[in-house]
């Protein structure tokens, strides 16, 4: 099996493992919705909400959709507000929506099939950063993160 392919059994096993760990406690963390990320959002850019800035450095949870990942197993994926019909990594003329969140997982983890709704818990980091390996630029991230299917 190539690409992002994962056998269903393998996914289920891993998810079971994960849900028993830190993500299970995601419900206890401060939850940030995509709608609550921004104070202002316009054609000239956006500003993060005061609450989001205040939570920077703390563990929080967010829910969204996992964008089609680069590889089956990764420490890195992109969380989007809506399921992505397009795969920006696969298609040259596709592009990312503006409101995305980059998730750095605590450890290399098999990723679920794209389009699945997930809940992610991790340490919030705000500010422009280019991923040292891929050059992918993000404005907001979760570090030391783990996820489970919503």
């Amino acid at each position: 099996m190539r690409g992002c392919g994962l056998s269903r059994r393998k996914v289920l096993t891993v998810l079971a493992t994960l849900s028993a760990s830190s993500v299970a406690r995601a419900d206890d963390l401060e939850f940030i919705s995509f709608g609550g990320l921004y104070k202002s959002f316009g054609v000239l850019g956006y500003e993060f909400a005061d609450r989001v800035r205040a939570l920077s450095g703390k563990r929080v949870s967010m829910a969204g959709y996992m964008a089609p990942p680069l590889t089956a197993e990764s420490t890195f994926f992109v969380l989007t507000r809506e399921p992505l019909a397009i795969c920006p990594f696969c298609q040259s003329d596709a592009d990312w929506p503006v409101d995305i969140l980059v998730v750095y997982l605590e450890q290399a983890t098999p990723l679920v099939t794209a389009g699945a709704k997930v809940v992610v818990a991790g340490e919030l980091e705000v500010g422009s950063l280019a991923d040292p390996e891929t050059g992918f630029v993000s404005q907001i991230r979760l570090r030391h993160a783990a996820y489970r299917r919503a």
């Binding site: 392919g5 399921p83 795969c87 099939t113």
Partner: peptide, 18 residues
């Protein structure tokens, strides 16, 4: 309408279950 989403195999698409 979003007819299809990325499938399990990289670069392929399957029906959007929603």
């Amino acid at each position: 309408f979003v007819p299809a989403v990325a499938g399990p195999e990289k670069g392929t698409y399957v029906a959007n279950e929603t």
